[in-house]
Design a binder for these strands. Structure first.
Lengths: 144, 144
DNA sequence: TTATTAAATAGGAATTATTCCTAATTAGAA
DNA sequence: TTCTAATTAGGAATAATTCCTATTTAATAA
């Protein structure tokens, strides 16, 4: 089932279907934590101990360049991967070492409208607007 | 004159004033291109060939932790530094390999209002909102 | 089904960016 | 000027990623 979806994604990207690529996409899609390449390699090796690390890096780069998956930057400067390329934003909870997805089409629209209407960037073709919200989980104030 | 400003910044951060630190801040403030550590080291070595690369990295980390300078993330996974910690956003012109500053308090307000009003993140203390605008310079269409 | 071939992979070396380590030096306080 | 904790030099170590090349393989078409 999910295997079929993965194969379709690869086909649509014009990529050959290989066990290595399936393993990488499988591992990435099963991980909601925006894993690093190293995270993925470790996950993959639990099942396919023979897949080379260099290959995983290579596959990830190809998938990003074909726009099948996304790449996100972090404060600690490790590349993390995003299983989806749908437009969305990220909430950085640095204390928890978590990056949480934040989908909000309305917000996208508000920002785009503002940028357009005010002609802030009138010689720029805007391809994407990404928001990074940096925050802390609020501790509930029961008692005291 | 700028030297005085640099000394004040260091003092305010409670840091000792050393020639190495002055050289790093000087190089960073004279560079509007969001340089990498390596860029800065090369610039510094033109004048002070005796300052160690490790020291530059160390100083940059200290300055970031004291909030004197900023650190920005890039898709190509190299840390770049920002001479100012004033709230602002970045326009990524990947084709030109440039990251351009984009100051816009009004936009900050619009986004914060939206997030607050809609209670999108009601158990999160928002510390910062950063916008990355990814775009291309539009080629002017004179002629055909 | 099999043969063909361009594309993909394995495995390890090489590269790059950054941090770590320790002895020597130095800025700022007394 | 003296003292001391902080800072720096210089190089080794580490970590993440890319590069290299021989080997293997997926997809195509006969």
């Amino acid at each position: 089932m999910k295997l079929e979806l993965i194969k379709i994604k690869l086909k649509e990207a014009g990529m050959k279907i290989t066990p290595q690529r399936i393993a990488v996409l499988q591992a990435l899609m099963d991980n909601r934590q925006h894993p690093t390449a190293d995270d993925l390699i470790k996950t993959i090796w639990k099942v396919h101990s023979n897949i080379s690390a260099g290959t995983v890096y290579h596959i990830l780069n190809t998938l990003v360049s074909k726009n099948v998956i996304g790449k996100i930057e972090t404060v600690d400067n490790v590349v993390r991967y995003d299983p989806t390329t749908e437009k969305h934003h990220h909430l950085y909870l640095n204390d928890e070492h978590e990056i949480v997805d934040f989908f909000d089409d309305e917000l996208n629209g508000i920002i785009m409208d503002y940028l357009m209407k005010n002609n802030k960037l009138n010689n720029i073709n805007i391809e994407d607007v990404r928001i990074q919200i940096i925050g802390k989980v609020r501790k509930s104030q029961t008692g005291t």
